[in-house]
Lab assay of single mutants.
Amino acid sequence: ELVLALYDYQEKSPREVTMKKGDILTLLNSTNKDWWKVEVNDRQGFVPASYVKKLD
């Protein structure tokens, strides 16, 4: 499943990933309501769920 980055996000820990507004990311896990695991540029990590939106 793919998600769209709604905002820029700068990683604050090694478990997170940086994304730019408009990026298309692969959603790996959305079981946590606050932090979703995504893959971007061959890196996996977490981003705030409120910063991304699922693409239909």
Rank of each mutant, 00 (worst) to 15 (best):
L2Q: 10
L2C: 11
L2N: 06
L2A: 08
L2W: 13
V3W: 10
V3F: 08
V3T: 03
V3M: 07
V3L: 14
V3E: 00
L4D: 02
L4Y: 11
A5C: 12
A5R: 01
A5T: 03
A5H: 01
L6P: 00
L6R: 05
L6W: 04
Y7P: 00
Y7H: 13
Y7L: 10
D8K: 02
D8E: 05
D8R: 02
D8W: 03
Y9A: 00
Y9E: 01
Y9Q: 00
Y9L: 00
Y9F: 07
Y9N: 00
Q10V: 14
Q10G: 08
E11W: 05
E11L: 07
E11P: 14
E11I: 06
K12H: 09
K12L: 09
S13R: 08
S13L: 09
P14R: 09
P14V: 11
P14K: 10
R15F: 11
R15D: 14
E16Y: 05
E16G: 13
E16H: 06
E16F: 06
E16V: 05
E16D: 06
E16A: 05
T18Y: 04
M19E: 00
M19T: 03
M19Y: 01
K20I: 09
K20D: 04
K20C: 12
K21V: 08
G22A: 03
G22C: 11
D23S: 08
D23G: 04
L25M: 13
L25A: 08
L25P: 02
L25V: 06
T26H: 13
T26C: 13
T26E: 09
L27H: 01
L28C: 07
L28S: 03
L28K: 06
N29D: 15
N29G: 07
N29Y: 06
S30E: 13
S30Y: 07
S30K: 08
S30I: 07
S30M: 09
T31H: 11
T31Y: 09
T31W: 09
T31L: 10
N32F: 08
N32P: 05
K33E: 10
K33F: 08
K33C: 11
D34V: 12
D34P: 02
D34H: 15
D34C: 14
D34L: 13
W35Q: 03
W35H: 03
W35S: 02
W36I: 05
W36Q: 01
K37F: 15
K37G: 05
K37C: 14
V38W: 00
E39G: 11
E39L: 11
V40T: 15
V40E: 02
N41T: 09
N41F: 13
N41E: 13
D42F: 13
R43C: 06
Q44K: 09
Q44F: 07
G45H: 02
G45K: 02
G45P: 00
G45Q: 01
G45R: 01
F46Y: 15
F46L: 08
F46I: 07
V47M: 00
V47H: 00
P48W: 02
P48H: 03
P48C: 03
S50F: 09
Y51S: 13
Y51C: 12
Y51P: 03
Y51V: 08
V52C: 14
V52G: 01
K53T: 14
K53D: 08
K53L: 12
K53H: 09
K54M: 12
K54A: 09
K54Q: 09
L55G: 04
L55K: 04
L55T: 07
D56T: 12
